[in-house]
């Protein structure tokens, strides 16, 4: 049963990567990258169950935290050109 889930996630990964390659704007690619991260976490969890080694879940949790930081950092970089702008110059947030 976990093999079905793993196969579905792999198919979804392929589609997300296709969007990352096609994506006309940078934001499509960021969105696809974030989705790839989400799917990778689920793949780690499912793979852990598939091989009977649930330690993979810890890696998944770490990846989940890094995925958030990574996506936000990339977005901030493309918006401001650097990562160290002052918070009070932010508009409309």
């Amino acid at each position: 049963m976990f093999a079905v889930a793993a196969a579905a996630i792999l198919v979804a990964l392929a589609l997300a990567i296709a969007r990352a390659i096609l994506g006309p704007t940078i934001f499509d690619r960021v969105l696809a990258g974030n989705t790839v991260g989400t799917l990778a976490i689920m793949l780690l969890a499912v793979f852990g169950f598939l091989t009977g080694r649930p330690e993979f879940l810890d890696i998944g949790l770490t990846y989940g935290l890094l995925n958030l930081i990574g996506t936000l950092a990339v977005l901030k970089f493309f918006r401001h050109g650097d990562l160290a702008h002052r918070a009070d110059t932010e508009r409309g947030s």
């Binding site: 079905v4 889930a5 196969a7 579905a8 198919v11 979804a12 589609l15 997300a16 696809a32 989705t35």
Partner: peptide, 15 residues
């Protein structure tokens, strides 16, 4: 798990 797989694939297709 089957439902989850289905929704994952549907989301990617929508993407």
């Amino acid at each position: 798990i089957l439902l989850g797989s289905f929704f994952v694939v549907v989301g990617a297709v929508g993407l």
